[in-house]
Every structure is written in structure tokens, then in C-alpha cells.
Nucleic acid binder design. Structure first.
Length: 860
RNA sequence: GCGGACGUGGCGAAACUGGUAGACGCAGCAGACUUAAAAUCUGCUUCCUUUCAGGAGUGCGGGUUCGAUCCCCGCCGUCCGCACCA
């Protein structure tokens, strides 16, 4: 008899649904503790991919386990439904973004439901639904009223041919992806959330996030980027267009005596001023504008610059002046958009100085170096040392003591002051696009920016838009933007920018607590469920999405919507799903389904020609190395897909999807089914006495319960899987051993525990096994508590002690635990192999680690 | 370029975070069952030396320690993020 997953899986899903196993109230009255499990909700691209299967399987294991542990578990699902792909589909295929999105959602919901996830589907929503984004508009207006939103000019990537703003990913090698035209930077008036208001708090609170991965906290801390330094004002030797000084931010004011130039960003006002009269500078600035706004691009391109001819005075050295350059690596967004260059102690400045033959004066002498003859070669010295060539700073320790002294002097001279600087920039949320949440403000010539009245919310997107011309369809709409000013009644214009989709995902976790509420969040529901106890998603979101959510939660707290500051108490970041890639003889990428893969190599399934096996890489459509979860569930069932995805490796690491691995997982589902097939509850009470074999099986069962609990708590799902294999092996072995009277009882115990233990991972098979073992009379596993291990069966009766001589293993001892050191050492010395090696040698040290190891250290 | 991680048999990995490296699975090999194949079951499986017994071994090179996959220093390789992809 074989396990018929195709029949069983829909059956048990219907049972769970009929029992409402996974539904919870907005404000539960059960008295049980709460646990909120959330996986990052998907973008509705149309099909689920293996990354989703992994993410939602991980979350489901946690949700089911916690539910069994007696928690009320909130485990919702929704759709991150606004975004560029829907507009691209509209432009390419003429389908309306709304239609495209809702059809995708329907398809993906059906696929997700086949996975047997323990979700409360009654809480489902999509961010493109006015019932969601209308609430978001309320939040926007509350933030605006609280001074957390601001309008200012900032730079965007502009495609001059398509007349549209480009996302960084739409800029390829400095050109627009569709038009191929060189991209230009352009300044637009944009809306910003003032995330920098919370910079100190966002940084400090990281310490309290003890259930977040350390690396994520580090990345966030570096991203927020607190630094202590100084602002220094350099007087220009001659004013330029009314500008008579350059303010610079530096973290190394101690190296001011080593300066050899000042460099300003191409967007710096002074660069514009010089451009007006200097064609060379104007040309350079224009060229920098064609680089787009991506920091990664700016930082990796060749360091270039141009001398403006201007000179600045040194704050400490009367009479000394230095050239002012425009440099393509100076960022307008960081500090003041201007730096001073000290080539001896900053690698980038050194590269720049070497390239343009600027002086390199060392001012920090590294420890152990002689001052005389010390020069800087190809490497700048950015470490500690003692100040030289630095006037009043000479002899001080760098950087700290010298830094304080330099700042004190700058302040005394009125040439600057010590400041704390943040790398974090305010969050620009304006998008010149249709498929997003409309920003609910009106621009009035007389009244300025006027909020859309709350009674007019949700401010809906118009449906009748066209995508036949470049730019923002909202802007082109014949009527939508024309509106009377709510304040004065005069003709006014709606804001036509929509929100960054990161805004939608920055508070959805709060909305899930009360998805139907008439306000953004219902107070009691949010108070009960927040924060999310376990959040699970891809490491690629380690910075932006998580930081924005942390900001949003604080902004919602400031405007009275929630009473927590941190959205996610626990965070787990999963790795990607990867697969081999294949290329045919003509160089085209091939889908795994088109390839016959053997240990020796690969051939094309139809033509039989040789196929090149490429690297194992993240699944992507462009390389066609994708596997369709739907097809896997058709062939093997959801439990097999879930089991394999959990068993392969630790969830935080990238996993390789392999056909052989899935087949192996499938075989195990059948093996479990066979093991339990025909087994029913033994008649009579529990036996008084167990044979050694039956006792050993019972120990294995209870150790598995304990081990699995520990593994599941610690996200070591691959270890949990291994423990399940071990118990299954133990049951199979016991089957073969002589059938002592009590063995039947021990075996039934093992099997019925095993059925319950695999439930978080393979919920359908668990129900099937459970129902068969108990003749259908013992309820749903989904509603049973987690098994408890019998402490008496966890007691360790024998330990294996390794015996080393000079750190090398020479023997092992089998002993009862807790033996005294002398006894263990004596037993170790008596081992023939050990005695042989100790013969005639002097033992200088005898190491004994109880119940673990003995080590004899010999003289000489 | 900057920031963050990761690297263990043929492959995915485990190892009570300083104490027997390789649990468990995949693949492979041998055997049983079968007319045969599939499925299933049993055994073997880090590498080297001639078994007994040794030697080497956790990306590479050093260091600390009785003892290092684990701690420290320096390299190499791979991956993630870099603010308008989600």
C-alpha cells in the first residue's frame, strides 16, 4: 500500500479549514499566550517560486510548533501588490495593472493553499486595495501633521528620451533600459519621511533586538552610520558668486595639517557657480550627471576630478592655501557635500593625490616608525600613531587626543565645531508612477500644500488610465488631478506622485492584527498581537525594509496608533534557493525540465545533444534555472516539497534544489507510511517491564522528542529532520529484533509520537499516520499539544570517553557517567594502546574533562 | 569602492560554541529479493600507507592552547546590500 498524497492533502486541508484550526480573533479571549509569526508577504508576480516555498515552509513550522506549544498563533498572509512590474505589463501587453495584479493574486493564492500552510486566510489583504492604502493615506496625513513628512528637492535618474524617472535597476551601464539613452540626474520636488529624526533611537534600540541576527544589526548600525567628527569652514581666497567659504565634514580633524586639497561634489552649489564661467568644470559636472544616482556605481567608477582654480585658506596655518577640486566620488548626500583631502591617511584621497600629483604630507607617525625618513608609499596609514608636522598637535596620540585638541582649536577660532554626523538619509517616498498609493495632498497656489480631507479618504486611483505615453499616467489623466482646494475652494492640483512600495510593506504587519478596522490599526488588537514574535524573510531585506518598518512603527507610536517601538522582536533571515544552470549547444539557457541529468553529465531530453552544466546560482527566470513548485506538488505532494526544503541544509544558508533530493524526500514519506501501515494501538495497559530492545526504542523515542523540541526552537530544522530519520531507523531496526512482549507497545508509542513530531514539517502525512494509528478516533494532530518527553528515559546510562596521548586519540572508554577523575585516568592508563605509548615516558600533565576526554601530556 | 556574511568527504551537512571531526541524508559500490527491471531491504563508503597499527585532514599561511571546525593575525574565493526592484 502506498501513501496517496494527492487524495490525503486536500482532505486534511479541508479538515483544518472545517475545524477553523488556524483562525484567531483580533482580540482573543482564550487566556493563552500569543505568538505572532509572519513571513515577508509576497509580491504577486503570478507564480510562487521556490524562495516562497522555503520562506512559508519555515514560517509554517514555527507556527504549527508554537500552536502545539499552547500559544494563540497569529499567522496571516497578504500581498505586496503595488509596484513597477504591473505597470511594465500594462505598457508591454496592454493589460490594466489592477487586472494583472488581481489575477496574479488569485493564481498565487491557489498555489499557496496547496502547500497546506497553517494560515488564517480570513485576514488576507492586498496593499493595492483601497481599504488598505486608504488607511495608509491616513497615516501619511498624521505623519505630515506631526512634522514627520517634508517636501524638498532631490535628484532622480531621468531618461530624457522616454521622459520618465528611472529606478536604479532600470539604469544599465548608465543608460535607460528601454530607450538606451544616457541617463541624466534631474532635480524634482519630492516627499520625504524624516527617518533621520529617529536616527539615534534606531541605532540605540538595535542593542535590544537580541533575537535578531547579529549581522543584520551590524549592517543596520553601519547603514545608520553615526560618526563623530567636525565641521570645518574653509574661507575661499576670493568669493565666487557670493559664496565665500566651503564647509566640510570630516571624521579626522586631527589630520588637518596633512591636507592638500578640498573636493566638492558635482552637485555642490559652488560647482554650479564655477560652471557658469568655466566650460571645463561645466563639462565635468555635466558628465558626472550622466552617472545616475546609484551609490554603488559612483563608488566603483574611476576616481576623477577637475581643479576649479579656486583656493581655500587653512584654518590653522596663516597664509597657506589649497586648491578646490570637483570630484566624482564626493557625495552631496553625505555630510556637507565637501571634503578636505589628507592623502597620507586616507586611501581614496591618496589615490586621488597620486593621480593629480598633489602633495602627500604624513602627520600621523605609526607606532614603531622613525619620524625621520618616514614617507607614505602606495598605502595610506589610517591607523593610530603620534602626531607630527602638525604644529600645536605634535606629539599627541592620533586619532583621539589629537582630534579633541583640533576640534577645541577650531571652535576657539570660530572655524568649525565638533559634530555628530549620520550617514542615514531621509526616506524619499515620491514615485512618479501610477500603480502605487496616491499621496493624499493638494497643491493650491494660495494655500500651499493642503491635506486631502479625511472624509475624502481613501483617495482612489482612477481606473481609466492609459499607458500609451511615457511618464506618470496620473499626471496625464484628463480630470483626476484637477480639484478644488479644500481650504479656499480655488482651482488646485492633486499631488500626482504615489508612494514608494516600501511604504506599503512598512506597516502591513500591524494591519494584520485587525485587517478590517476602520482605522489603520485597532488599538486593542495591536496591543495584543504586536510586536511580531517571529519574522522570517530574505537577507536581501536586511537593511531597507526592516529599517523602514522600524521607523514606521516609531512614527505610528508618535501619532498614537501603536504603543510599541519595535515591529519585530525576533527575526530570521533565510538563504536563497539555488539550482544548477544548463546551456544547450547553441548557448541558450535550458530549463531543468528540458535536461536529462546523470552523474556523468547532462544531455538534452529531446535532441540528445550535450548540455553544458553551469554554476549553481540563485533561481532566476533569465537563466531558466527555476523549478515550478506547482509541478513539484503535482508529482510528489506538498509534504515532500516541505520536507526536502527543510532537510537540505540550515535555513539561513543558500540551498540547492536538486531532483535527487526531492526524490529522496518523497521516498521517506512513503517509508514512514509503510512503517506505520497496519499498526494499531496494542490492547491492554502499558507493560510493567520492557526488554532491553524495547527499552532502547523508548529511549530513542523520548530523546527524539527532546531533541526535536530543541532543534525546532533553534531553527535547526535540518537537524530536526535528521533526528526524525534516526527515530524512523530505530523503529525499523526494532521491528527486526526478537519480538519481546513489550515491543509492540514501545513500537506503537514510537510511531504515534513520530506522527505528531513530524506535523510541523509534514502536516498532511502526520494527520494521515495519526488517523490510521488511532483508527480515526484521536482528533487532529493540528489540535493536539506537543508531546512531552519522559525525563526518566532521557537519563544517560553510559558515556564514551576519548583517551588521548599528546592530543591524539588512542583509545575510548565506556563508563557510567560522573566517574571520579582518578578512576577514569587509571582506566585510561590501563588501555593497552595507551600503556604502550606511556611506557618509559614521563607524564607532565593529565587532563580530565568529566564524561568527555582524557589527555596525557608527555615530557620532551 | 564601502558595509556584512559564508567556506568541513564525490554532494547537502552535523559537531553539546575549546574536548572522539564527518551524525543524518543524497550519490556511489557490493549483496538479498525478482524471470528481469523498478520499488524495497542489508552492508560498505574522508584521503593516504601493506591488514595489526599508523599518518594526514574542516579554503590557504601563521599564532594561542594539553587539545582549535570553534579564539587571534594575514591572505584567497563565493554570496548579499549600497537608498527608485521587491
Amino acid at each position: 500500500m502506498r501513501y496517496d498524497f494527492a487524495r490525503a492533502e486536500p482532505h486534511w486541508q479541508a479538515q483544518w479549514d472545517a475545524h477553523g484550526c488556524f483562525r484567531v480573533a483580533d482580540v482573543p479571549t482564550s487566556g493563552r499566550p500569543k505568538y505572532y509569526v509572519l513571513e515577508m508577504f509576497p509580491y504577486p508576480s503570478g507564480k510562487i517560486h521556490m524562495g516562497h516555498v522555503r520562506n512559508y515552509t519555515l514560517g509554517d513550522v514555527v507556527a504549527r510548533y508554537k500552536r502545539a506549544r499552547g500559544f494563540d498563533v497569529l499567522h496571516p498572509m497578504g500581498w505586496d501588490a503595488f509596484g513597477l512590474p504591473a505597470e511594465n505589463a500594462a505598457r508591454e501587453r496592454g493589460v490594466h495593472p489592477a487586472q494583472w495584479t488581481w489575477e496574479n493574486i488569485a493564481a498565487m493564492r491557489a498555489e499557496l493553499q496547496r502547500m497546506g500552510l497553517s494560515l488564517d486566510w480570513t485576514r488576507e489583504f492586498a496593499t493595492c486595495d483601497p481599504s488598505y492604502y486608504g488607511q495608509q493615506q491616513k497615516l501619511f496625513l498624521d505623519f505630515l501633521a506631526a512634522g514627520l513628512v517634508e517636501r524638498r528637492e532631490s535628484w532622480v535618474n531621468w531618461d530624457p528620451v522616454d521622459g520618465t524617472v528611472l529606478a536604479n535597476e532600470q539604469v544599465i551601464d548608465g543608460r535607460g533600459w528601454r530607450s538606451g539613452a544616457p541617463v541624466e540626474k534631474k532635480q524634482l520636488w519630492q516627499w520625504f519621511f524624516k527617518i533621520t529624526d529617529f536616527a539615534p533611537e534606531l541605532l540605540d534600540a538595535l542593542d535590544g533586538l537580541d533575537r535578531w541576527p547579529e549581522r543584520v544589526r551590524l549592517m543596520q548600525a553601519n547603514w545608520i552610520g553615526r560618526s563623530e567628527g567636525a565641521r570645518v569652514r574653509f574661507a575661499l581666497a576670493g568669493a565666487e558668486a557670493g559664496i565665500d567659504e566651503i564647509e566640510v565634514y570630516t571624521t579626522r580633524p586631527d589630520t588637518l595639517f596633512g591636507m592638500s586639497f578640498v573636493a566638492i561634489a558635482p552637485e555642490h552649489p559652488l560647482a554650479a557657480a564655477v560652471s557658469a564661467r568655466d566650460a571645463g568644470v561645466a563639462e565635468f559636472v555635466a558628465e558626472c550627471r550622466r552617472m545616475g544616482t546609484s551609490e554603488a556605481v559612483i563608488e566603483t567608477m574611476e576616481k576623477r576630478g577637475i581643479d576649479t582654480g579656486l583656493r581655500v585658506a587653512h584654518p590653522f596655518i596663516p597664509g597657506a592655501t589649497y586648491p578646490v577640486w570637483v570630484a566624482n566620488f564626493v557625495l552631496m548626500e553625505y555630510g556637507t557635500g565637501a571634503i578636505f583631502g589628507c592623502p597620507a591617511h586616507d586611501q581614496r584621497d591618496l589615490d586621488f593625490a597620486r593621480k593629480f600629483s598633489l602633495p602627500v604630507v604624513p602627520v600621523v607617525l605609526p607606532p614603531g616608525e622613525a619620524e625621520q625618513g618616514f614617507t607614505i608609499g602606495a598605502k595610506a596609514h589610517d591607523g593610530t600613531g603620534r602626531m607630527i608636522n602638525s604644529g600645536f598637535l605634535d606629539g599627541l596620540a592620533a586619532p583621539d587626543a589629537a582630534k579633541s585638541a583640533a576640534i577645541a582649536e577650531l571652535e576657539r577660532l570660530g572655524a568649525g565645531q565638533g559634530v555628530v554626523n549620520w550617514r542615514l538619509r531621509d526616506w524619499g517616498v515620491s514615485r512618479q508612477r501610477y500603480w502605487g498609493c496616491p499621496i493624499p495632498v493638494i497643491h493650491c497656489a494660495a494655500c500651499g500644500v493642503v491635506p486631502v480631507p479625511s472624509g475624502d479618504l481613501p483617495l482612489r486611483l482612477p481606473d481609466d488610465v492609459t499607458f500609451d505615453q511615457p511618464g506618470n499616467p496620473l499626471d496625464h489623466h484628463p480630470t483626476w488631478k484637477h480639484v478644488a482646494c479644500p481650504a479656499c475652494g480655488a482651482a488646485a492640483r492633486r499631488e500626482t506622485d504615489t508612494c514608494d512600495t516600501f511604504v506599503d510593506s512598512a506597516w502591513y504587519f500591524a494591519r494584520f492584527c485587525s485587517p478590517a478596522a476602520k482605522e489603520p490599526v485597532q488599538e486593542e488588537a495591536a496591543a495584543h498581537w504586536l510586536p511580531v514574535d517571529q519574522y522570517i524573510g530574505g537577507i536581501e531585506h536586511a537593511i531597507l525594509h526592516l529599517l523602514y518598518s522600524r521607523f514606521f512603527t516609531r512614527a505610528m507610536r508618535a501619532t498614537g496608533h501603536v504603543d510599541v517601538s519595535e515591529p519585530f522582536a525576533g527575526l530570521f533571515t533565510q538563504g536563497m534557493v539555488t539550482h544548477e544552470s544548463y546551456r544547450g549547444a547553441d548557448g541558450r539557457w535550458l530549463y531543468p525540465g528540458e535536461v536529462n541529468r546523470t552523474a556523468e553529465g547532462a544531455t538534452h531530453r529531446e535532441t540528445g545533444e550535450a548540455v553544458t552544466v553551469g554554476r549553481v546560482e540563485a533561481m532566476s527566470k533569465s537563466r531558466r534555472n527555476t523549478v515550478d513548485p506547482g509541478a513539484i506538488i503535482d508529482r510528489f505532494g506538498a509534504d515532500t516539497a516541505r520536507w526536502f526544503i527543510l532537510s537540505d541544509n540550515p535555513p539561513e544558508r543558500d540551498m540547492e534544489w536538486t531532483e535527487a533530493g526531492v526524490v529522496g524526500a518523497y521516498r521517506f514519506t512513503q517509508r514512514l507510511f509503510r512503517l506505520a501501515d497496519g499498526v494499531t494501538a496494542p490492547a491492554g495497559a502499558r507493560p510493567e517491564v520492557f526488554s532491553p530492545a524495547a527499552h532502547a526504542l523508548r529511549q530513542a523515542t523520548h530523546r527524539t522528542i527532546a531533541a526535536l523540541s530543541e532543534a525546532l526552537e533553534g531553527f535547526a530544522f535540518n537537524v530536526a529532520v535528521a533526528r526524525v530519520y534516526e527515530l524512523a531507523n530505530a523503529i525499523a531496526d526494532a521491528e527486526k529484533s526478537a519480538d519481546a512482549p513489550a515491543m509492540g507497545w514501545a513500537r506503537f508509542e514510537a510511531l504515534s509520537m513520530l506522527a505528531r513530531l513530524v506535523c510541523p514539517m509534514m502536516p498532511h502525512l502526520a494527520e494521515e499516520l495519526h488517523a490510521r494509528l488511532h483508527g480515526g478516533a484521536a482528533g487532529l494532530v493540528a489540535e493536539l499539544p506537543w508531546p512531552e518527553a519522559d525525563a526518566a528515559l532521557l537519563v544517560v546510562e553510559r558515556v564514551t570517553i576519548a583517551v588521548q596521548v599528546m592530543g591524539k586519540l588512542r583509545a575510548t572508554l565506556e563508563l557510567a557517567p560522573g566517574m571520579a577523575a582518578e578512576h577514569v585516568l587509571a582506566a585510561a592508563e590501563a588501555e593497552p594502546n595507551v600503556a604502550r605509548l606511556l611506557e618509559g615516558r614521563r607524564v607532565v600533565k593529565r587532563v580530565h574533562v568529566p564524561d568527555r576526554i582524557v589527555n596525557f601530556v608527555l615530557a620532551g
